[in-house]
Amino acid sequence: MTEKTIRCPQCQKDVHVDDHKICPYCNFHFPLTVDERLALFADEGSFEEMSSTMQSKNPIDLAGYEEKILENQKKSSLRDAATIGRCTIDGEPVVVGIMSFSFMGGSMGSVVGEKITQAMIEGALTGNPVILFTASGGARMQEGIFSLMQMAKTASAAALLEETRTPLFLVLTNPTTGGVTASFAMLGDVILAEPGAIIGFAGPRVIEGTIGEKLPEGFQRSEFQMQKGFVDSIVTRESMKQTFSFLIKTHKRRS
């Protein structure tokens, strides 16, 4: 366990956090890096990354997009906003996809769409459960219509999992909005969420702008979405591994 002091963006206090990175005052869940995330549930050393070299192009030739990608790659040491691979959980093989909000707000462009699709296809081929962690502001506008089409692509991959009876588990982390919510994030056999995550289609400011009033406290948070019937269960970082183990055990494909 390593201890760090960071400023909590929710309660503005300087807090000491351990590897789970949770604010002790307001329960804010800080974003985790891919490695920190994997450490919560994957058997040590079991993760093998897939398609690690995949990178973005500039499909609509938008000025400044390539520079933006480079800048984000330097800042985050990631190639794009999704990392996929295989690992084991208590010895059971699974396919994992992890989105990183730190890379261009976790926006879904061609790379994210293709990687999430590849993870699901790997699941469909092997029958191993697919676990996806979302964190996204939505579609990547810089890729124009191609980013919108990634919604169709990831959702159709979820349809393949349905046809091959492969389990799909989602963990929605803060924030999960826009095109990701309106595609694969809402298509899991089981949809889990981290406490207090913002989950919705339209962003809070857009809704406030439409209805012309302040949103009620807690609107679009995980707890709200569970109450409204769109999140199956709220899972703590501490119990993540145990929860996955249970889900894997109870979602065996019938033969």
Binding site: A155, A182, S183, L187, G200
Partner: peptide, 26 residues
């Protein structure tokens, strides 16, 4: 676009669109 309102969010506009994408694709 889909309606970005309170009721729309409460009744799961994201889930509704997602289901359509999945079902229409097959």
């Amino acid at each position: 676009g889909a309606y970005p309102g309170l009721g729309s969010e409460e009744r799961g506009i994201g889930e509704a669109i997602a289901q359509n994408l999945k079902v229409f694709s097959t």
